[in-house]
Amino acid sequence: MSDLLEGALQAFWLVFGRDPVLIEISLRSLRVTLTALLVACVIALPLGAYLAVRRFRLRRYVIAVLNALMGLPPVVVGLIVYVFLSRSGPLGVLGLLFTPTAMIIAQVIIIVPLIASIAHQALRELWSDYHDLLISMNASQGQRIRALLWDGRRALLTAALAGFGRGIGEVGAIMVVGGNIDHLTRVLTTAIALETGKGEFALALALGFILIAIAIGVNLAIHMLSGTEREGRW
């Protein structure tokens, strides 16, 4: 119990003392996850829409695989990315291992299935609404997908936020491919793991509180930004 209290206090001092290390790793956390989120959305949202609109033979299997990949343990993703990026691996020449880019790659792989699945779920419902109308209007495949993405944007925002949540709190994969190197690849979650390992519970907790605060802050900010153009309940 005293650890919690001390952690809260220490978090307070870290934040209000504008601790430079804290700021550095917090910003890195945000940068890595937001970049991964952006890339993942560019892949996953159209994929979700495509799966909703298009009936092809392997569709069920793609969806089943996506759903299965949602539960993929991050550390396994990390290992696979590690193997690919390691010096002797197929992409070793790029020299990406133990860089933020490697962490971004791993996070993209982790959150794409999640975002695509949620997006597909939501857009499938919208498509069953729109199906007759858009076909009647002779909308092309691309136009159908664009209509779904635009009109389903609230649901897609939820999908993106779920992806952000999974990314920002993820530790297994980025630990493996990033290496938790001070001033280079250390982020909030890996720092927490490190401090916990050293027995610095209060500091670890403090970082944890800050992580939670950032996650909540980003969610609120995005909801408020998107709320300005809202009318009606969807």
């Binding site: 007759d132 009647s136 209509a147 389903g152 969807w234």
Partner: peptide, 12 residues
Amino acid sequence: QAFVFQQPVMMR
């Protein structure tokens, strides 16, 4: 051609 459905589809 255009079609007006018995239950009109409202885009969001």
